[in-house]
Amino acid sequence: MELTLAVRIFEVLLGWSLLLQTLEYLRVPSLDRLTLWPSLRQEIPPRPAWIKASLDTLFQPGAYTALLALRLVLAMALMLGQLNWIGALLLFLMALLLLLRWRGAFNGGSDFMTLVGITGLLLAHLVGAMTDVAWGWRAGFWYISLQTVSSYFVSGWVKLLRPEWRSGQAMTHFLDTGVYGPLPQNSVFRHPQFACVCSWAFTVWEGCFPLALLDARLALLFCAVAALFHFLVFWFFGLNRFFWAWLSTFPAVVYCAGNTW
């Protein structure tokens, strides 16, 4: 894949992912009477004092909404290919603020992968400013690729080390506990043999993900299966943010698979 094409697709997908997340963040205050800043602020370390004071100001309802509105604008600028290094830096700083607002994560792994994408974007702009643009994007893409491939590799192998995953029992158990669960009584995932085959299929696929870096066509295949996998994760667990956060990293994987450093 050409670098310029990979960059453009990455920017559109990451911008889209950030846009969707931000719209959800904007909706949450009207749904949530629990995780309010006056309670959460107690956990912020008292020193240095200026941090807590600044956060108190930034997380006032009006300021927080303005912050999210700015994030929305930056996400759209990214999608349009109009985001410079200042915008990338702002997105990175806002990601840090959101981590502080939500006790380290609002939506677990999807926040982690979003941070990977934003960090890669910032890296691309900073290294690009110091060397040249192409080198910057290579650095950003390799950072993102290694994190993405590591996420599948680790996730796959830690499961294969566990007997409940090798037997398929864990798959049925976790699908049953999903937010859209429990599984219907006649679900195919309740058949031990079917669950076992599915478990092995996707854990081995996850564990073998580093092979994607050998060839761009192989990377496309791995990423296509990954997209289906994340859709199923959404379907059973409601994790829509995971779908978009991981999808946004695939252009980096496909680019790196076809190019040496």
């Binding site: 959800e24 629990l34 006790r103 939506n107 959404f234 379907w235 409601g238 829509n240 779908f243």
Partner: peptide, 29 residues
């Protein structure tokens, strides 16, 4: 415990489910 009905459009906008999962995370924490 978070149990909500699935909707197709949740793929692009799912604040209630994500909030419910965040609340369950509080229990884990």
């Amino acid at each position: 415990y978070p149990r909500l009905p699935r909707k197709g459009w949740h793929l692009v906008h799912n604040p209630a489910v994500n909030l419910a999962l965040a609340h369950q995370n509080l229990v884990d924490h």
